[in-house]
């Protein structure tokens, strides 16, 4: 039965995707991709990927919609010419790719077959070792934080790079700061209901974000999702009360510090592993009991992830917002 639900959702997704490409109104495209993200996330949930579903929702439907909108506010809302002249070549390339992919599906194992090679080799080991060596319920977090912690380190630095990049691109000194002050002030202050309800909820959203952060070991969640949620709550504040007030509460300097310190914290934990006689990112040496050490390490690096992600997302948002209009 579940798979029928999945198929239904997939079909909806396909329809949405095609509509996204076809529409010429960029705003509509952004809205539809929000829908697409939600559908995709539901699908992930059906496929047992709770953590991924949470991330996709926070990122795809939340943060990226906000980012797209703020970019859209700074640029045009309509496509002019729909397609390039190379349309046919494009179609040919794309069809070829698709045929290749479909061709590849013929020998693939059935979806969900427990005997497929994917589920044989490494996966059982992770499940088992999580119980023995790390002893936290969420296997995804264990793999993410410890077994493949180096990937996650890379991930943090990808986010970090994006943050640096957007700051570098958009934080040109002396670009339209005077205008920001007057425009940014008004925001949604006029709308009584959203403002009041929103403000009432902000602390709880924030708390929920932190909850997701610290319960990453027990349930779906972790540093990235938490960072996105915390950032979302501050973005909500900025939407309601204006850029300037949000920046007064969390000044840029602080955000920059957050970005760097999260990344440093993660790296620092890794280096501590070396200093204490283990390998890089070896958390077992952090405490007397290796299992405790692993848990401590995961908490610390998740905190690092959360801090960096919050800082980066907020910086990016402010960088777009400071361009004057959104």
């Amino acid at each position: 039965m579940t798979i029928v639900f999945g198929v239904f959702l997939l079909t909806l997704m396909l329809v949405t995707a095609i509509a996204i490409v076809r529409t010429q109104n960029l705003f509509v495209a952004v809205m539809l991709s929000g829908i697409f993200s939600l559908l995709l996330a539901s699908n992930f949930f059906l496929l047992d990927a709770a953590d991924v579903a949470l991330t996709e929702a926070a990122v795809g439907a939340g943060i990226s919609t906000v980012l797209y909108l703020s970019a859209l506010a700074l640029s045009a809302q309509h496509e002019h010419a729909p397609y390039s002249s190379h349309r046919l070549i494009a179609l040919a390339v794309v069809s070829f790719t698709t045929l290749a992919v479909i061709y590849a599906t013929f020998d693939q194992p059935r979806v969900g077959d427990p005997a497929a090679p994917v589920h044989q080799h490494v996966a059982p080991w992770y499940l088992e070792m999580t119980r023995d060596a790390i002893d936290i319920p969420n296997v995804v977090t264990a793999v993410l934080g410890s077994f493949r912690g180096y990937d996650t380190l890379g991930e943090v630095f990808v986010v970090f790079t994006a943050g640096i990049g957007v700051l570098f691109l958009l934080d040109k000194p002396g670009a339209r700061h005077s205008q920001t002050q007057t425009v940014g002030q008004v925001r949604l202050r006029h709308y009584l209901i959203p403002r009041l309800v929103g403000r009432m909820l902000i602390p709880f959203i924030l708390l929920f974000g932190l909850y997701v952060q610290f319960h990453g070991e027990y349930g779906p969640g972790g540093g990235f999702q938490a960072g996105a949620l915390v950032a979302a709550s501050i973005i909500l504040y900025a939407l309601l009360e204006g850029e300037t007030r949000a920046l007064r509460a969390l000044p840029r300097r602080l955000l920059t510090l957050l970005i760097a310190s999260g990344a440093l914290l993660y790296c620092g934990v890794g280096v501590a592993g070396i200093l204490l006689g283990g390998n890089f990112l070896d958390y077992s040496v952090l405490a007397d009991d290796p299992v405790k050490g692993q848990q401590l390490g995961i908490i610390l690096i998740e905190a690092g992830v959360g801090i960096t992600v919050t800082g980066v997302l907020l910086s990016i948002f402010h960088a777009f917002a400071a361009r004057g209009r959104f």
Partner: peptide
């Protein structure tokens, strides 16, 4: 279910949003 692809995709999603932001 297999945790590994989920971990990989978590990372990939983050990479995706970073690219989009940039």
């Amino acid at each position: 279910s297999n945790p590994l692809p989920q971990v990989l995709i978590l990372t990939a999603i983050v990479v995706g949003i970073s690219t989009t932001a940039l």
